[in-house]
Write a protein that binds this DNA or RNA. Structure first.
Lengths: 328, 328
DNA sequence: CTGAAAGCGCTTACAG
DNA sequence: CTGAAAGCGCTTACAG
């Protein structure tokens, strides 16, 4: 069934039918009702392709995922995508996935060149991000999840800085002073923010930071183990981990070294996906709602596509979950 | 730039340009070369929407993911989707994600009703799968990953049955007799196959199965722990786990009960995603290439869409990885 | 081998 | 408030 059939059946013009459906343009209330009723009863669905061609829009957006992720990120991207997809449905968009690597964004290029999408959500950004460079040249609407260097692209993220600062402060206020930090690649902008949050807390509490207990770029299991062992020698009271993947290795190392949490040493994580959920003792951590982030980023993008005014930078909240693992 | 511009520029008709691009219909070799050259030089890309409207095709397919998954499945779906997406690109399709729950397939319905896709890959099937029922009614081409009850829908999967049978056999041949099995929901067809593979191995080796050491529907951490403790009392020599999520809980329980693998008890897994990868000792397991499965399922679906002859059932291989954890 | 024309199913300025 | 007509950018039967 097409718009034409409806028009013929109802003895009105295609134009009128179109107007009744879209709600655009003046139309008599009765006529509209009549059309809507007919459509409902006969279960008519407009052809998205035809509509798209006429309006040069696809009603598709793309969610871009990187290839090189660890398990924490996996779960993040998954939840985030879920949020995107769910909000997109509500706004009558669909989401096409596009997977890229640091060196190969050809899939994304194809998608854009073929005009299969109206806009793009970058699931993560890198320093000198090739995807971002490319997208800027094309002029297609896009936004970035996470902080981007380039302030001209709308970005959205949870407030990692504030969260990390609050969690660190809380531990300092408990009287913990020898508070170590282990984190991943500092090229990653979110890790820069986490570090900054940690430092901010010390500053706010007027306590000097000991750089000797900060280990960044601990990207492998081995490096994490080494860091933990060194920290044990330094007799730190608590280890803060930048995410739960790191935290798991830290916990395993502590266990095999014979240290009990929280009696002998305390542990907390700046990011808890799902991996820590059953751990004994429960881990004090920051929790972020990746689905909500996805949904919000979808709305943001659609606003961009529809040329509404959008904020340069949107910050979403976090939850501080205090658990057994930091009990003094 | 449109096909019209090219035609005008080259003083030929749109028809001819279209033929040069599509390769369909008779066309002079020189004319074609000329068009192709022009297109290449001017970086023309056909409008997918217009092409789609004319052919009533979208060149999109959908990958349907369930909502309720554990971490093992998460990693499976992710890799599988990667494979689908990558193969789709090669075949000039794009993939729209569609997320469903056991009770709510409205997203999928919307997608199909709006005619946004040419075909569907069901990432998983259930008994009395509502998505499958719905898709059959619509007549849209679709395939299922994993075994489906309904033999009329093309299905593709790794050969879990053969894999599980081979792994079990191998352990029996090592002389292990008290060989326990812990698995998840038996409503899940893949788990039925795993159980069957286990039983087949005993039969082939003419050894009686002891149903007292088979625990299925061990879906929670608690149930797994209980099962392990019971098995320890029964003094089994080896525990086979249906997947790595179960395996991790088994390993943790063994550790806290003070049992060493493989000295005191052996452990193996019928499915290894990525969660086990750094475990000490390394775990004997079956490995499946989810990306390859995704890619193959994409090819299969595209064949269906293009009305080629396809097999009812395609079985992909597996890898048997023998490790420390089953060393006698 | 090539082209004019109709068609895919919508939208939207323009006219009334 | 409503409609005839042109247009979105392709494809494809039909004719030559």
């Amino acid at each position: 069934m097409t718009i034409d059939d409806i028009a013929r059946e109802l003895n009105i013009s295609k134009t009128t039918v179109s107007r009744a459906i879209s709600g655009k343009g003046r139309i008599g209330i009765e006529t509209r009702e009549k059309v809507l009723k007919y459509i409902n009863e006969n279960n008519y669905r407009p052809n998205a392709l035809a509509k798209g061609l006429a309006q040069s829009r696809t009603f598709n957006i793309s969610f871009v995922m990187p290839e090189d992720y660890n398990l924490t990120e996996l779960s993040f991207f998954q939840n985030c995508m879920w949020g995107v997809s769910s909000r997109a449905s509500d706004l009558d968009y669909d989401v096409i996935i596009s997977m890229v690597t640091e060196n190969d964004i050809s899939r994304l290029e194809r998608l854009v060149d073929n005009r299969k999408v109206d806009g793009i959500i970058l699931g993560r950004t890198l320093e000198n991000d090739p995807a971002m460079e490319y997208l800027k040249k094309t002029g297609i609407p896009f936004i970035a999840i996470g902080a981007a260097e380039d302030k001209s692209v709308p970005q959205i993220d949870n407030d990692h800085l504030a969260g990390c600062s609050e969690l660190t402060s809380l531990l300092l206020k408990k009287g913990i002073r020898k508070l170590a930090l282990i984190g991943g690649s500092i090229r990653n902008i979110v890790n820069q923010n986490r570090l900054k949050g940690y430092q901010d807390a010390f500053e706010k509490n007027k306590i000097p930071v000991d750089n000797g207990v900060i280990y960044t770029d601990a990207c492998s299991k081995i490096k994490i183990e080494e860091a933990v062992k060194e920290l044990l020698l330094k007799r730190v009271e608590c280890i803060l981990c930048m995410d739960d993947a790191i935290c798991i290795h830290v916990l395993n190392t502590l266990e095999s070294e014979g240290f009990k949490v929280p009696q002998d040493i305390k542990v907390a994580s700046f990011y808890n996906s799902r991996m820590l959920e059953n751990h004994q003792p429960a881990i004090t951590s920051l929790q972020f709602d990746a689905m909500e982030l996805g949904a919000a980023s979808c709305s943001l993008l659609v606003d961009c596509i529809e040329k509404k005014e959008v904020a340069d930078r949107t910050l979403l909240g976090y939850q501080l979950v205090i658990n057994e693992s930091t009990k003094v």
